[in-house]
């Protein structure tokens, strides 16, 4: 060890020097509020506004079934959702008017300013694996109904588990090849798997990694008011058309997001927002602060 001492000493000295000279220092200590300390004495604190976890309900009706021909069954799809907002706010500033305001940065030499805030982040059960702490109170997603005759083998006791080949949603969009508006697949989830975990309730257990519905989020299963489900029944494939009532969902969602959350200092290390799911704007500033100047 002894012979390495001079090198260790020099490296440590260099680190201290760098700290002393740094314009900005990010204080990311477990159990402590997240603070950004500037060389001139200003201090900013990273705040979080958590909205409550909410289970949204979307009513549906089966409109066509190419295998059983059974139509008309109704039910509800349930989706757990939570949105949070983040804001880096001045805690100490020479200008007292700025205290409590959002820190605004600008690329060095640039003209465009941007606040260091992430107004809209959302979580669904998709993040269960990546964020077990954040999703620990999330109820399971799934569909519930009294009537499952629309499934293959219509009328019999529903199976314990289900595996769909596809679940698409549709909406009016422009066909990029013809330039015309038409009903088109908007999102697609492949191989969603379901398990019957309670009477009348099938829980969504898995979505394939091949799902292309924007980050594979199950939230996107519910985008578009026409759903198309493909499933296999023996040797044949069945197509089930579903009309969803998104109006209620929209009203509920707008109401949910319309209520401003109460902000409080974020405590570092309590959940995955400290690392894997750190919101983009704050993370970007933390990683590239040298490229910005603060207004």
């Amino acid at each position: 060890m002894g012979r390495f001492f001079p090198w260790v000493f020099l490296l440590a000295a260099a680190a201290c020097w760098a700290d002393e000279e740094a314009d900005v220092s990010f204080q990311l200590v477990d159990g402590q509020p997240v603070r950004v300390v500037y060389k001139d004495g200003r201090v900013a604190e990273w705040m979080i506004g958590r909205r409550p976890v909410k289970q949204f309900r979307t009513r549906y009706q089966i409109t066509e079934n190419t295998c059983t021909g059974f139509e008309g069954a109704r039910g509800e799809f349930l989706l757990a959702f939570q949105s949070s907002a983040f804001d880096l706010r001045w805690k100490q500033n020479g200008d007292p008017k700025k205290v409590g305001q959002t820190v605004v940065i600008r690329a060095k030499g640039g003209t465009t300013s941007s606040p260091v805030k992430d107004d809209f982040t959302f979580l669904t059960n998709d993040q269960r694996a990546a964020a077990p702490l954040l999703t620990k109170d999330f109820p399971q997603d799934g569909f519930q109904a009294k009537e499952f005759s629309w499934l293959p083998g219509g009328g019999a006791e529903p199976p314990d588990s289900l595996k769909f080949v596809r679940w698409d949603t549709e909406a009016m969009q422009t066909n990029p090849e013809t330039g015309l508006m038409e009903n088109r697949t908007l999102t697609i989830a492949t191989h969603p798997k379901w398990a019957r975990t309670a009477p009348g309730f099938f829980e969504l257990r898995e979505l394939s990694a091949g799902s292309t519905s924007f980050f594979g989020s199950r939230f996107l299963l519910f985008v578009g008011d026409i759903w198309s489900i493909i499933l296999k029944d023996g040797d044949r494939y069945c197509q089930i058309s579903v009309k969803a009532n998104l109006a209620d969902l929209q009203v509920a969602l707008v109401g949910y997001l319309g209520v401003q959350p109460t902000f409080e200092p974020y405590t570092f290390g309590v959940d995955e927002y400290s690392n894997a799911l750190m919101p983009y704007n704050f993370k970007n500033y933390r990683d590239r602060w040298k490229e910005y100047e603060v207004e």
């Binding site: 596809r166 088109r184 697949t185 492949t190 091949g210 493909i230 494939y237």
Partner: peptide, 16 residues
Amino acid sequence: GAFITSGSTLSDLPAP
């Protein structure tokens, strides 16, 4: 019917 497993992306399952 031979396209039924594929929506806007190609399915891993062929369809008869």
